[in-house]
Simulated scan of single mutants.
Amino acid sequence: MNITTKPNPVLLVHGINDTATVFCKMSPQLARKGWLVHDIDLTPNNCSRPLDYLAKQIANYVEKTFPPEQPIDIVGFSMGGIVSRYYIQRLGGIDRVGRFITISSPHHGTVLAYLLDRPGSIQMRPDSPFLADLNRDFAMLDRINFTSIWTPFDLMIVPPTSSQLLVGRDVQVPVALHAWMITDPKAIAAVVEALSEDIRQHHPLGQTPPPQKLPSIDSNI
């Protein structure tokens, strides 16, 4: 670990239809390397509520768990990366997070989201208003250490390049399956490396853009 001071606590955020137990391999490995690891069970986890609703759960967890002066790092897997982005970009997380890592997250949507007509999955469709809103100012992620880890073989994030953003570090790992991205040694090593990076720059507090009003989503679609 290249961190010269005590590392930030790490919050792990799972994907659709998962719980925090999905990090059963990553979490203990990070703990053995010196990180204090936290996780959260997003409810509901099946996209039956909008992703911004889930992001408020992250905001509440952070507020209740960590003192205001404590910076944290976040690792978001798949849908969890997008939920975490909303927390960071729209709910003040940009002022709390030092390192943000997404693993196989559909930053530009995935065509598989058309298989479910639920509010959260609608938001993860390509060119959705929700993603368009986040992506119009994705450059704000350059104020923190942002890393996207993804695999070109992903059959859940279609196309796989949807996991890329034109900001931060882009790390491609040759992992065969989407679900293996949080268990494969190469992917976990990439997470360790990203969490070990020195914070590149300090950003001022209190400059988070105000929340944007999104089009309403009919949950009965």
Rank of each mutant, 00 (worst) to 15 (best):
I182T: 02
S128R: 10
L115R: 11
L131E: 05
I94H: 03
L141S: 13
L116W: 15
M26K: 03
I74D: 08
A20P: 01
N2I: 02
F23T: 02
V111I: 15
N8G: 01
L30T: 10
L115W: 10
T110I: 11
W180M: 07
Q89A: 05
L177R: 14
S128M: 10
G76V: 04
W150T: 04
F23Y: 10
Y86V: 00
F146S: 05
A179V: 14
V175T: 00
G92S: 00
D184K: 05
M79H: 02
D52K: 07
P50H: 11
T4P: 03
L42P: 10
L141N: 09
P215R: 01
E193C: 03
L166P: 07
I122L: 15
T102V: 13
F77T: 02
I101S: 07
L54I: 03
R118C: 08
V97Y: 06
Y61F: 15
G109T: 08
S219A: 12
Y53W: 14
I82Y: 04
D142C: 07
W35S: 04
F130N: 12
S216Y: 01
Q57T: 11
P152S: 06
Q70E: 15
K64R: 15
D198L: 04
L42F: 08
R85K: 10
A176R: 13
A113Y: 05
A113F: 08
D133P: 01
I94F: 04
Y61E: 13
W180P: 00
Q29W: 04
V37G: 07
K56Y: 06
C24H: 05
S105C: 11
S163W: 13
I188G: 02
L134N: 10
P106A: 12
R96K: 14
C47Y: 15
G120W: 14
N8L: 05
A187N: 01
